[in-house]
């Protein structure tokens, strides 16, 4: 603030307050909805005062949506994606920056291109790959004639199959196969002064030592940022878990996918009015973990967001 502008300040506060209402009102209505009875909520009036059935509804949502198991699935998947991404990006970027092997630039571009096409765009064939992760290798073996050759010599028909549907591996791996973090790390490694490696080498540190004891501690802030972003990204996934977990009775699915089942639509059971109070309670439960992560890690979250999206 440089000059005194009372009217403009008032207008600015109006804008800020309007923004706050726009953010908070929907969240408040979800909370109020979650505290009413079915009969109360299905009356056409504006519900802004909370009722007294909040815990009842939360319990109902927890049971109806099997949220204990579903939240656990979501947690495993999100931690898996975030950890996998951090490790994978770090070692890939390390290999690309600190070694000069032939074909390095080709590999760089091959990874770079993956940024262009999100999972949603190639969803149908990715599903086919998840149904048998060895499909690519099997096809390659068939094409180069190795399958026939082995069949001829040993009398064994190679039939590789690895079904990833309804497994954590299947939920996690396709989401890691992108370049997002690799570039963050590459950029960071490029800013590390050359002298550091020279000094480390003089002290007898090999590649593993250098990575573990120099680069990893130096990149701790990047790591936290990437972890936070990837955790939220994975928790938010909807289309992929929806497809990758067809066996709802045994493996279940993630909490986010389960949400839709709490509020029936035309495709789930022919429509009809959902039990909005229970649906809102479930909504609140599923919403909470990412909000907590963002509240605790706000600085890392914003840093990571700006670094990975650019």
């Amino acid at each position: 603030m440089i000059e005194k502008t009372p009217y403009l300040n008032f207008a600015t506060y109006l804008v800020l307050a309007f923004g706050a209402v726009m953010v908070l009102l929907p969240l408040w209505m979800v909370f109020v909805g979650a505290s009413l009875t079915v009969r109360e909520i299905n009356t056409p009036e504006i519900h802004l005062i909370p009722g007294t059935h909040f815990f009842e509804n939360v319990m109902a949502a927890w049971q109806r949506g099997h949220l204990g198991g579903r939240l656990f699935n979501s947690l495993v998947m999100s931690v898996g994606v975030a950890t996998g991404k951090v490790v994978m990006s770090a070692i890939t970027a390390f290999g690309l920056v600190y070694f000069r092997f032939p074909g390095r630039m080709l590999i760089f571009w091959l990874i770079f291109i993956t940024l262009m096409l999100p999972l949603e765009v190639r969803i149908v064939p990715t599903y086919a790959v998840a149904a048998n992760a060895f499909w690519p290798i099997q096809t390659l073996l068939d094409v180069i004639g190795l399958t026939d050759a082995v069949d001829y010599i040993l009398g064994i028909r190679i039939g590789l199959e690895w079904n990833l549907l309804n497994s954590y591996t299947g939920l996690i791996l396709p989401l890691i196969a992108t370049a997002t973090g690799t570039f963050l790390y590459r950029q960071f490694f490029l800013t590390v002064p050359d002298e550091l490696l020279e000094a480390a080498r003089m002290d007898g540190a090999g590649p593993f030592r250098f990575l573990a004891e120099f680069l990893v501690p130096l990149s701790r802030a990047n790591m936290a940022a990437l972890f936070t972003i990837m955790f939220l990204y994975a928790w938010n996934q909807y289309l992929w878990p929806l497809l990758a977990t067809p066996d709802r009775a045994h493996f279940g699915t993630t909490a986010v996918v389960e949400l839709k089942l709490l509020a029936p639509t035309v495709s789930t059971n022919g429509g009809g009015t959902p039990d909005w109070n229970v649906a809102m309670a479930g909504c609140l439960i599923v919403m909470l973990p990412p909000l907590i992560v963002v509240a605790l890690m706000q600085r890392h979250f914003i840093r990571g967001l700006i670094a990975t999206e650019k």
Binding site: M88, S89, I91, T92, F94, G95, L96, Y98, F99, R100, F101, P102, R104, I107, L110, I111, T114, L117, R122, P125, T126, A128, V129, A133, W135, P136, L173, P174, I176, A177, T178, T182, P207
Partner: peptide, 23 residues
């Protein structure tokens, strides 16, 4: 150099299986 390639290999396998093959 082989070590460098080894560091890049896991990512390449993933990208091949879940990106290039489906595409």
């Amino acid at each position: 150099l082989w070590l460098g390639m080894l560091f890049v290999l896991p990512q390449m396998l993933l990208v091949f299986t879940f990106f290039y093959w489906p595409t």
